[in-house]
Simulated assay, not measured.
Amino acid sequence: MLVGYVSPTDPFKDRKSWSGTYYNTREALEKAGHQVEWVSYTNWTKTDKFFAKVYKAIYGRKGSYIHSRLASHIRTRTIKQDLSKYDVLFVPGQVDIVAGLKTDTPIIYYTDGTVPLMINYYWFGFTKKAIKEAELVEQRAIDNASYVWLSSKWAADSVIKDYHADPNQVSVFPFVVGNNDEQKIHVAKYDGQTLKVMFSGVDWERKGGQYAVDAVETLNQRGIRSELLITGIRDLPEAVKSKKCVKNLGFLNKNEPEGLKKYLATWQEANLLLLPTRAECSAIVFCEAAAYGAPVLTTETGGNSTYVKKKVNGDRLPLSASGAEFADVLEKWVKNGDLDRLSQGAEQMYRDYNSWKAWGDHFNQVVR
């Protein structure tokens, strides 16, 4: 099958954009036996920037320009390839493009959330006019797509409930990461000496960084020597940097060999992932944890339940949980010897859901 891969950045080269989703899904498509060609378009041209200002004047400064008919019209016009030559068009995340495409070629729209889910969860302060426009564009995208794929059941349920999509058109396709069979990366086995707890994310507040610090400090106070390995944060609060139980790796650019090397080395040092996130659609780091056999402790929010299964590869606590309550779970895992079992569960999650092969096999089952 010849797949036209529509994205603003080269999915053959860019390992970083949208947390690596463009690169990884393109790899999965090729591994599944399909020929993939990049269908490029141009965004943020002078014209685009001008109309983004027009958008703000009409809909307010805190709206989403991408979720507008202006962006949809302007950006789809920059696509120059002949779309009729493809068997299917795969469009990850770009609601403006999907809404504006005019083609008889079947379209796969792949995303991680919906406007109704984002309001007052990720997005705050939107005007009623901006919300109405965003929902209109999203409805057009869903109606224009032959397939609507969501990265979590949470998001898939919203597409069916809020946009009345045909359930037969909607599928859950969890995000994926690179083939760990080639990298041979695995978290460390807990040695009974120091519990190495990994925290990864770029938004300290939204990812619940302070809860992770509190949990690790609590473990140390209880006599379980622990260290928090922090990656992804550019400006970590000084009060956190100075703590003895914290090892700050900073922001690591996975597009650069040295940054990727340090990031993978951190996984090999860690025993598990702790991510007490406050809001989450589908964290790629959960897929990485599965690939590297890392148990995960997170929160009951957003799409997390698609990636972290209780008693399989980890646990999810309510958003009301304190750092001490996260420590309770980690202490239980250590004392009951649960880490090895949860690590095996993580590896199975990767094989079944979060690997290139699993994603590609699912693609071949749905698209015929």
Rank of each mutant, 00 (worst) to 15 (best):
G232W: 10
K56H: 04
N220D: 04
H164V: 00
K129F: 06
I233V: 15
P257V: 06
N144D: 02
D14G: 04
K31A: 14
S158W: 01
A130S: 11
F363H: 03
K335E: 12
E27K: 11
W333L: 11
G20C: 06
Q348S: 11
E300V: 13
Q169R: 14
G201P: 06
I233G: 08
G337T: 11
P167T: 06
S171L: 12
L117R: 13
W154I: 05
Q183P: 00
K262Q: 14
V88Q: 00
W267Y: 13
S84N: 12
T105P: 07
V246N: 03
V202S: 14
N43R: 13
S146E: 14
A327F: 09
V177S: 05
V39E: 10
S322N: 10
Q193A: 13
Q183I: 13
L252K: 04
Q344H: 08
V285L: 08
F126N: 04
V115K: 01
K332I: 12
D14F: 07
K189E: 15
G20V: 03
L150G: 01
V95R: 00
V54L: 15
R61Q: 06
F51W: 13
D87C: 02
V176T: 14
S242Y: 00
W333G: 12
S64V: 14
L272Q: 07
A279P: 03
T25L: 09
F90M: 04
M349R: 02
E30F: 09
S322I: 07
M198E: 05
S17I: 15
T25S: 13
Y263D: 09
K13I: 06
A270V: 01
C287D: 11
L264K: 14
Q348H: 09
R351E: 11
V176Y: 06
G209A: 05
I108W: 00
D315M: 10
V329M: 14
F90S: 04
D87M: 02
K244I: 07
K189M: 07
G63D: 07
G20L: 01
L219Y: 07
V285T: 15
Y5P: 10
N24M: 00
V334C: 12
R206A: 04
D143K: 13
Y122I: 12
N144V: 05
G303K: 04
A289E: 01
T266L: 06
K189F: 04
D352S: 06
G337E: 08
V216E: 07
V177T: 15
S282I: 02
R140D: 14
R15T: 14
W267K: 05
W38A: 07
G302V: 03
G345P: 07
K254N: 10
R206Q: 05
N354I: 00
W18Q: 12
D166S: 05
K196F: 01
A290S: 15
R278G: 11
K196N: 13
L117T: 05
R368M: 02
L219V: 13
